[in-house]
Each structure stands twice: as C-alpha cells, then as structure tokens.
Simulated scan of single mutants.
Amino acid sequence: MTDTSPRHILRVDASMRREGSHSRGLADRVVDRLTAQRPDTRVTVRDLADGSMRLVDETWIGANFTDPAQRSDDQKAALAFSDRLVAELRAADTIVITMPIYNFTIPASLKAWIDLVARARETFRYTEAGPEGLLTGKRAILVYVSGGVAAGSETDFATDYMKHVLKFIGITDVEIIDAGQLMFAEAEKLEAAHARIETLAA
C-alpha cells in the first residue's frame, strides 16, 4: 500500500550567513526536491541565525531536572523555548540540518540547539539497558559544507558527532549531502552535491 499521509519537514539552518551561504542554498534544493515529490509536505523552518537561540544556564538546568509535575511557573517559562524546539522535532518526520563547518566543527548555534533538544524524558530516556532515543521513525539529512575539511577525514569532528547525537535521541536514518573542501574544488564539489540531492527520495 502506498503511504499517502502528509509529510512534515523541519529545516534547521545553522549558517550565520544568509547571503551567499552554500549550506542554505543546498538546503533549498533538498527541500525543493522533497516537496516536489510530495506537494502536500509541510515545512517548518528554524533559523538559528535569527537571534532567538539561547544557551543552557543554571536556571534552565534546575528546571529541566525538576519533576514536570513540580515545576514552578518560572521554571516552566525557563523551558518554554526548549519545549517549542522539541515539539518541532516531534512533529517532523524529516529533519534537514545545515552543517557549515566553523573551525573544524559545527557552529555554536547548532550546539546550542542540540543542548536544548537533547532532554531526558523528552527525547531520550535511561533504561536498564542504557539510553534509549524516543524520536524514532524519523529521517535526517545533513548538509555538510566546509572550506577545507573533507567529510569523514581525520579532521572532520562534525559528522560523526551529529550522527551520534541524532542516534542518541532515536534518529538512525541519517544521510549526508557532502559539499566539503569548497576552497579547493568549489564547482566540482557543488555539482556532486547537487547530483546527490537529485537522488533523494521523499
């Protein structure tokens, strides 16, 4: 039987550049490819460059580790933004994440997003057998862009980390659109990334 249910994409943009950003441009093509195959797809965009991202602090930690039934109004308010980010993840079946490489790893904004969505009892839980991700049945597409670091190389500290984090919260179906080392062969690398995008199935 063909699955005709509506799809929901969450797009997370981590590039601090809006103009001339290769990762954003490639993500545009990814989303266009997926929505062309499924016109009923809903797309939610979380732009980490819009100034809304917050860092985990002591107040947030105290609220997060308080039993939900015992949280004060102030603690609920401290977690409200994180709750919205988690809800966006839960609602989506496909997550497209741009990964421009800054100084050999992911941008600070993307790390902040991870810290706000990797939450015990919300996106993972601890069991006698170890941690268990709760966001199963989802797919992630990582758009990897770097000037000089090749994906999968010994100086790539980003892709394995992102795959591990996603697996930790239950997302094991992870694909990578590789546009690494653009400083050395930009046209060739972008052409290869575009060709890879054209193979994506909705």
Rank of each mutant, 00 (worst) to 15 (best):
A63W: 05
P6G: 12
R54G: 06
K76D: 13
E191N: 14
M183T: 12
V143F: 00
S15V: 09
V86T: 02
R139G: 10
R125Q: 12
T59S: 12
L182Q: 07
A187P: 03
D28K: 13
A69Q: 09
R54E: 15
G148N: 07
K163C: 12
V86Y: 00
A92K: 05
S72T: 15
R71K: 12
D47Y: 04
S82I: 03
D57V: 10
R33M: 04
A108E: 08
F157E: 00
D67Q: 12
Q181T: 11
D67M: 04
D160V: 02
N64I: 04
V43P: 09
Y144N: 11
A185P: 04
A27L: 02
T4P: 05
Y144L: 06
D156N: 06
A69G: 08
D93F: 00
D178M: 04
E154P: 02
R90K: 15
M162G: 06
P39N: 10
A92Y: 00
R33L: 02
V165G: 04
S109D: 07
R125L: 08
G180N: 07
A202V: 14
T127H: 04
T2H: 08
T105Q: 12
I9D: 07
E175V: 05
D83K: 07
M162P: 05
R196Y: 01
A87W: 00
L89K: 02
F124V: 12
A49V: 10
E154Q: 11
T2I: 13
M53C: 10
E122K: 13
G152I: 02
A69E: 13
A201H: 11
E122T: 09
Q75C: 08
A195E: 13
A120C: 14
E186A: 13
G20E: 08
R38G: 11
A14F: 01
V149E: 00
E19N: 11
R38E: 11
L116N: 15
V143H: 05
R17L: 15
L79W: 02
Y102G: 06
V31E: 04
D83P: 11
L48W: 00
G20H: 05
R18S: 13
G20R: 08
A193E: 11
L142S: 04
T44I: 05
T2D: 13
A129H: 12
T105K: 03
E88G: 12
S82M: 03
I95R: 08
S5A: 15
V43G: 08
A150H: 03
S146E: 03
Y161A: 04
F104V: 01
D160E: 09
T94Y: 01
T98L: 03
R24E: 09
E191G: 15
S72L: 02
R29S: 12
L134M: 08
A179G: 13
E188H: 02
K76A: 10
Y102H: 14
I177K: 06
G133P: 11
D57I: 08
Q181A: 14
A192E: 08
G51H: 09
A129C: 07
D156L: 01
E186I: 01
G180D: 06
Q70H: 10
D156V: 01
I169G: 08
I106G: 05
D93R: 14
E58V: 07
V43A: 03
Q75I: 09
D57H: 09
A77I: 01
A187W: 00
G130Y: 00
M53S: 15
S146D: 06
P107K: 03
I169S: 07
T35S: 10
R71L: 05
